[in-house]
């Protein structure tokens, strides 16, 4: 591996200042499950690695019934799915957090890191999108907020600019009648990258018989995770069921722009978008009715 220096940042300002000073020649280390591999395989070069796990804000995980869920960008997956409140309120997120890598990856990998790695196939991103997550981005002095669906710009590329890093993620509190799910398809049952990932969330009315809002997001079928707003919008006012799900699935399939690579063929991916969208919606509705 290349040589680099390692610094543990004390606070958000410290980390952002170091980033700014090194202007593109420094990398943020949270869980390290992507960064260390990329450095080892020379897909990334760096002079400095900034460990942010010691920063209280970015290692914080908290839920407030009004504010919602705040996930520090270095919080590893295992803390998320071992938190009973989050399990109850953010099922789509739990789906994703508990299937990123194996147990030992989840001991380190963070959702923030998964997002910043900006893989088109990242499991957490469609789940975050359907939960309406917002990114809290830090600069030395200021902050800005970006919805997750706007965060990735290309494979491995994000909206983060010079000196910026992701401090935390904010998810609104789920109202009654809300349900979400994330499903991915992999050829094995573990240790695989999504061939296709689909996140779906639904808001049902008080009778739980009609959809008032829905969000659908796709992974691994475009250069970035894809928020397919029109697929969700097509469900507004609809009665949950096979017919409505199929309609949304068809829109999602049309929006997908899959390619063939070592992990799957374009044909199979497009086919799977339909299958998984229907299945994810069915689970989301079932959860919304609980």
């Amino acid at each position: 591996m290349q040589q680099f220096r390692y610094i543990r940042a004390h606070n958000v300002e410290h980390a952002a200042t170091l980033l700014l000073q090194h202007d593109g020649r420094a990398r943020i280390l949270a869980g390290g499950t992507d960064l260390i591999v990329a450095l080892r395989e020379r897909r990334l070069e760096t002079e400095l690695v900034i460990d942010i796990k010691g920063i209280p804000e970015v290692s914080e995980l908290s839920f407030d019934p009004v504010e919602g869920l705040r996930i520090g960008s270095s919080v590893p997956c295992h803390r998320i799915y071992n938190d009973a409140t989050i399990v109850a309120k953010y099922p789509g997120l739990i789906d994703a957090a508990s299937l990123i890598g194996g147990i030992q990856i989840q001991g380190r990998a963070s959702l923030g890191g998964n997002l910043c790695n900006a893989s088109p196939a990242a499991d957490s991103i469609p789940a975050l999108i359907v939960h309406g997550a917002i990114c809290d981005i830090a600069l030395p002095q200021t902050r800005r907020r970006v919805p997750v669906e706007a965060f990735c710009t290309a494979p491995g590329k994000t909206v983060l600019e010079r000196g910026e890093f992701l401090a935390s993620l904010h998810l609104p509190p789920p109202p009654p009648g809300f349900g979400a799910a994330y499903l991915r398809f992999i050829p094995r049952n573990e240790m695989d990258i999504a061939v296709v990932g689909v996140g779906a969330s639904v808001q049902l009315d008080e009778s739980r018989q009609r959809i008032t809002a829905a969000r659908i997001a796709l992974g691994a079928v475009a250069p970035t995770p894809l928020f397919v707003q029109e697929a969700g919008d097509a469900l507004i006012g609809a009665e949950p069921g096979d017919e409505a799900f199929a309609r949304a699935a068809a829109i999602a399939q049309a929006a997908a722009r899959p390619i063939s690579d070592m992990r799957g063929t374009a044909e199979h991916r497009r086919h799977l978008v339909g299958v998984l969208t229907r299945r994810a919606l069915a689970i989301a509705v079932e959860r919304a009715r609980k």
Partner: peptide, 19 residues
């Protein structure tokens, strides 16, 4: 290469020694 770090299972190849 799995080891426990503060009781949490991790791949030691994905942890820097300095961490």
């Amino acid at each position: 290469c799995n080891v426990l770090m503060d009781g949490v299972l991790v791949n030691s190849c994905l942890v820097l020694g300095v961490e």
